[in-house]
């Protein structure tokens, strides 16, 4: 007799009044992750189940879901770690649901764009001068924060995101600071104007769960607190030395 495990999967269609949890039973394999179980359901049991996935190796960040109430990359979450089951699979918290396990990430994309997550240069140096050089120490200053894969697990873990929809959120702020700390970047002033608003770093109450669930150990909670220190320092500096205001 084949060993099986039960899954309770969130189902929703836009024309439904309310969502429902649908129970499924799938084969249990030691080397299967939750995403394998979902793909089994789609291939064998119910082809109408909708969810996003792509790389299956924790790089693309598209298979994030709530697994037993915690935001997880389903390609990184083994069935054997969820025993005895049933495993509750839901769409990411704090996002609107399009269909089944698919959420609308458009608000996140807009927040991400707002902080200019790219290298901003006042003037590009001529190609003949070669690349912008960087020392290992300068790279170390921002490397950890450059690991973000935009999986949005941190948004699903953050209760502030769920209560204040204007909050820029962990990933956007972490990426903003990632470029601020990059020695090749010159866009810090533009980003600070966005980051230091109330809806930026000051909405964060330091719950810290964004860092706890991050599969790439980016530590957005730490980044935001470091940015708060910078903002406070700048404010005091402009108070004590008003001539330094630019």
């Amino acid at each position: 007799m084949e060993r099986t495990i039960k899954l309770d999967v969130y189902r929703y269609r836009p024309d439904w009044d309310r969502p429902t949890l649908q129970p499924f039973e799938v084969p249990f394999r030691e080397d299967w992750v939750v995403l394998d179980a979902l793909n089994y359901i789609k291939d064998v049991v119910d082809g109408s189940l909708s969810f996003r996935w792509s790389c299956r190796m924790g790089v693309c960040g598209s298979c994030g879901m709530m697994v037993n109430g915690r935001p997880e990359l389903t390609c990184h979450t083994f069935l054997r770690d969820c025993l005895p089951g049933p495993i509750r699979i839901e769409p990411l918290q704090n996002f609107a649901v399009e269909r089944d396990l698919i959420v609308d990430i458009e608000p996140f994309m807009q927040k991400l764009q707002a902080v200019k997550p790219w290298l901003v240069r006042q003037a590009e140096q001529p190609l003949a001068q070669g690349e912008y050089l960087q020392s290992p120490g300068q790279l170390a200053a921002y490397r950890q924060f450059s690991m973000c894969i935009n999986c949005t697990l941190c948004y699903a873990a953050c209760p502030v995101v769920g209560r204040a929809e204007d909050f820029l959120g962990p990933a956007a702020l972490a990426l903003a600071q990632r470029y601020n700390l990059d020695s090749r970047d010159q866009g810090r002033k533009e980003r600070h104007a966005i980051m230091f608003q109330h809806e930026g770093i000051w909405d964060c109450t330091f719950v810290g769960e964004c860092s706890a669930v991050c599969p790439k150990h980016v530590d957005p909670a730490g980044v935001i607190q470091q940015a708060k220190l910078v903002a406070a320092r700048d404010a005091y500096r402009s108070l004590v030395m008003p001539w330094s205001r630019r």
Binding site: Y12, P14, P19, P91, Q93, N94, F95, A96, V97, E98, R99, V103, D104, P159, G162, R163
Partner: peptide
């Protein structure tokens, strides 16, 4: 389609 909003209740904590 209209996405379904999953609001966080006051018992989030």
């Amino acid at each position: 389609t209209t996405p379904r909003c999953r609001a966080l209740g006051w018992t989030w904590w």
